[in-house]
Amino acid sequence: MITTSGLTKVYRSRGRDVTALDGVDLHVREGEVYGVIGQSGAGKSSLIRCVNLLERPTSGTVTVDGQDLTALAGRGPRAGKELRQARSRIGMVFQHFNLLSSRTVQDNVELPLEILGKSGKERSRKALGLLDLVGLADKAKAYPAQLSGGQKQRVGIARALAGDPKVLLSDEATSALDPETTRSILQLLRDLNQQLGLTVLLITHEMDVVKAVCDSAALMEKGRIVESGTVSELLATPGSELAAALFPVSGERTGADRTVLDVTFHGEAATQPVISQLSRTYNIDISILGAAIDTVGGLQIGRMRLELPGRYEDNVVPIGFLREQGLQIDVVGQEAVLVKEGAK
């Protein structure tokens, strides 16, 4: 639904070039919620703004719903008619809501419809319907200043949906909200994704957001996508930073000559009594340092951190046994610890 290829954005300021995007290839499938996560300055914001060409990419292409937007952009800084039409079919919600304070809630939702040239009656019918959808039917005549942050973002979402978009871009939509409100806004996005078949591309710096709503995710660092895939693919990738950050298990090594393993269970493997088998077969004592079961992207996942006596070299055979059982094993070493800190 959204494809970027070789997307590069270089900002020029005071004679210095700053590369915000460095050849980003992103592929968002129709009907999925795709999260791009990264620290501030990683280029997430440039990426999402390049998707509807609020920001002109220096090179590379952006295709949304089969339409090459970069080809529509023209050369000048101003958006031509075709690009403006394409934009009207892409909804966008913002971190700071960006509602017009001089208009009522209903008039804010009607604004995109005014731009599309809809009649007054049609506008008000549509706007009231959307406000009902986001649960704010009673606030139609209020001004944005009278609403709470979560309510403002609901208005922002209703407004973004006014043009019947197939794609919704969310630029840190929950970053200015408290955890409770964040959950309800994410739930709303999830519902809209499922009810309307809306494709959602969201950027965030909060791992919880990805965990709560995303089908797929990408990790951005220094303008590049360093990891991407569906959540289950990521969790099945040994050494995945995103997987480790999405589903952290804690527990410190108790001594120097110990081997620490992160065991990930999903599907069939989750029901096997592998730990007691391991203990009996190899006659080793296993300590469990930490364990958790969680739902990530709608999948039940279990993770356990085990400690085996002896160094890694002494435990090659038992680790092989675990892998044979279809479990995903990550040996926790120096490198993995660093990765975890980096993803915070």
């Binding site: 009207s88 892409i90 731009i115």
Partner: peptide, 14 residues
């Protein structure tokens, strides 16, 4: 606020 300008641009406003 420039964000408001951007929001209307994103809606396809000229």
């Amino acid at each position: 606020d420039h964000g408001l300008v951007e929001a209307v641009q994103a809606m396809g406003g000229n």
